[in-house]
Write a protein that binds this DNA or RNA. Structure first.
Length: 708
DNA sequence: TCTCACACCTTTGAAGTGG
DNA sequence: CCACTTCAAAGGTGTGAGA
């Protein structure tokens, strides 16, 4: 069964359209990274203390490399305690890495847990200070080149353009989504590490935090925070970037993995009691709220029971009539139900499922999570025995351990973890394995499914669709991930699992959000570069993926957004300029205060059009586009039309100078595939980049001399 | 719908203890 | 020196009142 599944991998490739970077080489990218051009890379920003810090989970290894690079070629000039403007020298030390074939597979850990949550419409609490995800996003990687180094990242992108409300015990669409917050990439703190190291353990992103605090755009509250909108749906994504140091990140091979069962709706307070109960029952930190044990909830219940009893007794005395026991039982029962969401809303079967009766539940419940009556329908068909074993291991990882047995527990985890690494590669959830009955669909209750897109599972299009997809995988399913109708062709998905380069960009999968998030980070970068007289993006190549898809007007929201953005428009996902200056994102660390950081930034002071660039664009290379065109015949026809419009309307194109044209050509010509690009191409790419950067450097110098 | 203080809990790391 | 235990601080939870 697992062999029939496809990895949910989106194999984007090459520096030319790396998701985190514009069509530039390492130097250019580094410039942006270091804060000169703000937020191309949300996880990276400059510190407020003059030293380079990397918001998010950048570990010391990365820091060391970055700082080393700074000493050897990258120049920083501190703006007080604000963002340092980094102008760059060509990084001569960067050589294209020798390509060794790898075939990464990613297995979502705690898959059953995720599915259980997802089945009920997962909610994730977001707070001002940031709240962890639960279940934690953990993956296991296989198929990596043992000796090659990889950087693993995670981000969370909007899953659609809807705002939701919880009504009648269901999540329903409540209108258009609010403007997206700037997102940041979360780099796993162990990055970079060898494939062997990654494969030897579970990659855990538990430190990533979710917040709704827009003033934390800089990661000042917590560098691990990612800003989400409450009552919006999001999709975590996992990226593998093959790079042996952070400097190569921008132009390294990357792959993006999306697990549909990990999507969730961000909330500031739990709406769904079932989810609350699930979290309580599975999150060790919420142990105190469990009905079992001596937690607060139990105490409260007992307290209440006592008061009820005393009240009843008092009533008896006052009335002089003895109420029969049934009355008391009834009242108690009633109260019991009221005090227990699990009982009142989930019902006995589910309660039994959710609540492990004792402490062991912490350790074992995750793996042994007994789903309710419908659990058998969950797509655990992709799970084999080994997976179950893995799931049991997960339990230990979620579960608490007493402090005394910590070391033992730790050792046991390690042991288990190593055992897990032998497990079969990821088997991806496909809707073909999901029965439409598995999940309650709001749309079933709401005839106007078009207006109110269901968040139910059945409306999910699997990222790995097989040609034998079940009939219910209709267009409506597809558009959730921004797939046009014709997108589910076999050829397309053959690329996913096959050895062919898969040149479709991540943004073409899911998400308007995906694009907007990343693009929002690119805006200032693009703007800054543009104003500096250096080329902006190659609009032709940038637009290509969209062009290959369909016309903007006929596109689903996601693709429209993509199209517009890839044309360089400062297009908010919702029709206007992005409400938050992109500048805020990057300079992140840069700032003790947002305002000062912006004002003092030489590039940010200047009035310039806010341009957006799609980090996910696929350059218009012949092989790429042809691939895409082949895969999506229905969209190809509108490509040319789009291209024309896009070029005409793009502010980028309007601001291009001669330099930019050159740049555009060069950048457009280096659409490389991780699988197809030759070393020669890479070298050419680097050379062209270096030429560009030489120009950029001088221009930036000029710019700096003007700016304070 | 959101924020905050709160109690309860786990996790983590340092210090202490004994073999 | 090592393994183990104890302890305290830090930090992760959902709750519920109030805005």
């Amino acid at each position: 069964m697992s062999f029939l599944m496809r990895d949910p991998v989106i194999q984007g490739t090459s520096m030319a359209y790396h998701p985190f970077l514009p069509h530039r080489g390492p130097e250019f990218a580094m410039s942006a990274m270091l804060g000169h051009h703000p937020p191309f890379f949300p996880a990276l920003a400059l510190p407020h203390n003059g030293s380079l810090s990397l918001p998010g989970a950048l570990g010391k290894p990365i820091m060391d490399q970055l700082m080393g690079a700074a000493e050897s070629g990258l120049h920083f000039s501190s703006l007080g305690h604000q963002a340092a403007a980094a102008h760059l020298r060509p990084l001569k030390t960067l050589e294209p890495e020798e390509e060794v074939e790898d075939d990464p597979k990613v297995h979502l850990e705690a898959k059953e847990l995720w599915e259980t949550f997802h089945k009920r419409g997962t909610e994730m609490v977001i707070t001002k200070s940031g709240r962890r995800m639960f279940p934690p996003f953990k993956v296991r990687c296989t198929g990596l080149d043992k000796k090659a180094k990889y950087i693993l990242l995670m981000d969370i992108v909007a899953a659609d353009d809807c705002r939701y409300k919880f009504h009648n015990s269901r999540w329903m669409v409540a209108g258009k989504a609010d403007p997206e917050m700037p997102k940041r990439m979360y780099i796993h703190p162990d990055s970079p590490a060898t494939g062997e190291q990654w494969m030897s353990k579970v990659v855990n992103f538990h430190k990533l935090k979710l917040t709704n605090n827009i003033s934390d755009k800089h990661g000042f509250v917590s560098s691990s925070n990612t800003i989400l909108n409450s009552m919006h749906k999001y999709q975590p994504r996992f990226h593998i970037v093959r790079a042996n140091d952070i400097l190569k990140l921008p132009y390294s091979t990357f792959r993006t993995y999306v697990f549909p069962e990990t999507d969730f709706i961000a909330v500031t307070a739990y709406q769904n009691d079932k989810i609350t109960q699930l979290k309580i029952d599975h999150n060790p930190f919420a142990k105190g709220f469990r009905d079992t044990g001596n937690g607060r909830r139990e105490k409260r219940k007992q307290l209440a029971l006592q008061s009820i009893r005393s009240y009843e007794e008092q009533q008896k005395k006052e009335n002089g009539t003895s109420d029969d026991s049934s009355g008391e039982q009834a009242s108690l029962k009633c109260f019991d139900q009221a005090s227990s969401p699990a009982v009142s809303t989930v019902g006995p079967p589910n309660l039994k499922d959710f609540c492990e009766s004792d402490e062991d539940s912490d350790d074992e419940s995750n793996g042994n999570l007994k789903d309710g009556p419908d659990s058998s329908k969950i797509s655990t068909t992709t799970e084999d025995g080994k997976d179950r074993e893995a799931s049991q291991t997960k339990g230990h990882q979620f579960g608490g351990s007493d402090s005394n047995g910590r070391s033992r527990e730790s050792a046991r985890r390690t042991e288990k973890s190593q055992a897990d690494s032998r497990q079969s590669p990821i088997t991806v959830i496909s809707s073909t394995t999901r029965s439409g009955e598995d999940f309650k669909s709001p749309s079933r209750d709401q005839p106007k499914a078009d207006e109110c897109r269901s968040i139910s599972k059945e409306n999910y299009m699997p990222l790995t669709v097989q040609t034998d997809s079940s009939p219910h995988l209709s267009q409506s399913h597809m558009h959730h991930f921004g797939f046009p109708p014709g997108f589910a062709g076999q050829q397309f998905f053959n690329h996913l699992g096959g050895a062919h380069p898969f040149l479709l960009h991540p943004s073409q999968f899911n998400m308007g959000g995906a694009f907007s998030n990343m693009a929002s980070g690119m805006g200032p970068l693009l703007a800054a570069v543009s104003s500096a007289g250096v080329s902006t993006m190659d609009t032709a190549s940038m637009a290509s993926p969209s062009q290959s898809l369909t016309g903007a007007h006929g596109l689903p929201f996601h693709l429209q957004q993509h199209v517009l953005a890839s044309q360089g428009l400062a297009m908010s996902p919702f029709g206007g300029l992005f409400p938050y200056p992109y500048t805020y994102m990057a300079a992140a660390a840069a700032a003790n205060s947002a305002a000062s950081s912006v004002h003092r930034h030489p590039f940010l002071n200047a009035v310039r059009p806010r341009l957006r660039y799609s980090p996910y664009s696929i350059p218009m290379s012949v092989p790429d586009s042809s691939l895409l065109t082949t895969a999506i015949p229905s969209m190809a026809s509108s490509a040319a039309e789009l291209k024309g419009d896009g070029m005409a309307t793009s502010p980028v194109s309007a601001t291009l100078d001669s330099t930019s044209e050159v740049t555009s050509r060069s950048s457009g010509s280096v659409s490389l595939s991780s699988k197809t690009c030759s070393g020669k191409d890479s070298i050419n790419e680097l050379q062209s980049i270096q030429r560009l950067v030489s120009g950029l450097d001088s221009i930036q110098d000029r710019s700096r001399s003007v700016s304070p």
